[in-house]
Amino acid sequence: MTETKLPGDQFVQSLARGLAVIRAFDAEHVSMTLSDVSRRTGLTRATARRFLHTLVELGYVRTDGRVFELTALVLQLGYSYLSGQTLPQLVQPLLEELSAQLHESTSASILDGGDIVYIARIHTRRIMTVGITVGTRFPAYATSMGRVLLAGLPEAELEDYLARTELKPLTPRTIAGTDALRAELAKVRLQGFALVDQELETGLRSVAVPIYRPDGSVAAALNVSMQVRYEDSGRDLDTAAAEVLPQLRDASQQVTEALRAKQEPRVPPR
């Protein structure tokens, strides 16, 4: 029998109820009547009314007299948390969720010179001969995350990278020509993702998407790595990408929105 944990003597029930009222609003319940809020929170109508009108007075909720909606001032409640989070802290829980959904290894990296540097990683199995941890570096040109990051560079910076980087064939599949890599990066930029098939290491396939800063530049990259088994060797690459792209793009969008929220000014109280 599971023991029910009772609130301690420092527990403020009215605060808990007020937060429950705020949490009752979501994407499927943007506008609610008093009865709706009462039903979703389990509060009586009289109690729900008091909390709603208190929130209206504070500016967190607006009403036309019948229907209630949250206002943008609610964003302040999460601003302090977001403003203190670094990119790895924002990414890590999403990588965990993504890995659980896809049962594959997931990672995030940034560009440092000619290399990618891992800033977060969740691994389901050992898929490379070299262990990957936070801080691991790989040449950007031969990785899916690297190509996403390179494709996001301004043209002058990309040309400088291509001019000073020796493109070594790490496997028989590695794109090791400047013109070929430039064409591949143009494709990545157009389609919004990179797919690399056994170019960094034989047996490793990965798909990556960008994370954007509020100004639209590429801040980092997320990827899903998959081990190519014998039975998968003939599988169409587009099919492999399509199986993970929706979830990967959704995770990227969530981090992009969090970065935007970190930069947005606080809504001034009324």
Rank of each mutant, 00 (worst) to 15 (best):
V188R: 06
Y161N: 11
F138V: 01
A142N: 08
R126F: 10
T174M: 06
G152K: 01
G177D: 14
A186G: 14
P172N: 10
T71M: 10
S83V: 04
I119K: 10
M128W: 03
T136L: 01
R125Y: 01
A120G: 08
L158P: 02
E104F: 08
R147N: 11
G113K: 08
A163M: 12
H103D: 14
A120W: 00
E104P: 11
V130S: 08
D115L: 03
I119M: 13
V148H: 09
E157W: 05
S107Q: 10
E159F: 10
P88E: 09
S99Y: 04
R137M: 04
T86R: 12
Y141P: 05
I127K: 00
Y60D: 04
D115K: 06
H123V: 12
Y161Q: 11
T178E: 14
Q76K: 12
R147I: 03
Y60N: 05
F68Q: 03
A183V: 03
Y118M: 12
P93W: 10
T178Y: 03
L149D: 00
L170I: 03
S105V: 06
K168V: 14
L167V: 05
S83D: 10
R189E: 02
T178N: 10
L167Q: 08
A142E: 04
V67R: 13
A72G: 05
E184Q: 15
I127F: 07
F138N: 07
I119D: 09
G113E: 00
